[in-house]
Design a protein around this nucleic acid. Structure first.
Lengths: 157, 157
DNA sequence: CAGTGAACAGAATAATATTCATAATTAATA
DNA sequence: TATTAATTATGAATATTATTCTGTTCACTG
């Protein structure tokens, strides 16, 4: 049980808002925005990283540009023991699988998968998913069009 | 119809891999990694941004740190006309809604929502979702635990 | 009310970003 | 295939940021 206290204040929230919106914003700009010294911002940001408030920085890449045009969600029923998650972890190892969620109700997982096209999806299911021990059944939902897709979180205050 | 040619080569792919993994990596480091001059990397990166291969940079924030501990997926049946997407766009405006996908089959949407807890979810559905015109029905799936969640895309070669 | 620690400012230094002129490479074509 | 044009890279110079460090303030505590 790792109970963590984050203890964030207004300034932290403002920094997070700026960095969530632009992961490459520099300390100088944040400092200007908040009317503080860049060195102070640097300290804050480092602390936010250490406290695991900021988990990672990443460049969002256009899936179409790297030929990953098909997005699908797959519900997977598994025979995992409660609490354990052998299947979930195995699914998480697959590069095309962007998300693995343990969901309530169906003793199963919901995963998000990106492939080049429907052929790629079929291949993935045949060659990779089928190799995962403990999968009982799957139900696939194809995405026709994505209206919004980000990881932006609502920041308080 | 905006048909785009991305025309990426090995070097671009390597850059994308590095930047997807670390959105704050600097040109100097990329240059060292690839055995090129930093100025050349800068040019490449700028081109990747202009071509919309790199869509955005962002800091991934720990949802728990900002009290957004509950993740849910909601299937939404709507009476949108095919091709149009009034409902989808309205859903996309809601800050708690991170994703809106137009899905095949059910003439509906699949959305991903983050709230503080189940109370927050209920509030959102009562106060915000219910205000969206054209929603026929919803079916909610609660996430108990997330095993993996990123936007990393498989980069060729 | 001295002592301690956290947070910030400001100055100095180190590192990186950016610009630009030139060279190398590649592609196009006569 | 030689020649030109266009693209891409280099390397040096400069601008901007990151980072370090010292000193100050302020809140808290014994």
């Amino acid at each position: 049980m790792t109970k963590v206290e984050y203890n964030l204040d207004q300034v932290d929230y403002k920094i997070l808002r700026l960095m969530q919106d632009n992961g490459r914003i520099n300390n100088a700009d944040i400092a200007r925005e908040l009317g503080m010294a860049p060195s102070a911002i640097l300290e804050r940001v480092k602390k936010l990283e250490q406290k695991d408030v900021i988990l990672k920085y990443s460049a969002k890449i256009n899936p179409a540009a790297v030929d990953q045009k098909l997005l699908s969600f797959i519900f997977i029923k598994a025979n995992d023991i409660i609490g354990e998650q052998r299947v979930g972890l195995a699914l998480a190892e697959i590069p095309e699988v962007q998300e693995v969620h343990d969901i309530a109700g169906d003793d199963g997982y919901l995963i998000k998968v990106r492939t080049s096209d429907s052929t790629g999806l079929v291949d993935l299911m045949r060659n990779t998913l089928s190799k995962v021990e403990g999968i009982i059944s799957t139900r696939t939902t194809i995405v026709l069009q994505t209206v919004k897709e980000d990881q932006q979180v609502v920041i308080p205050e």
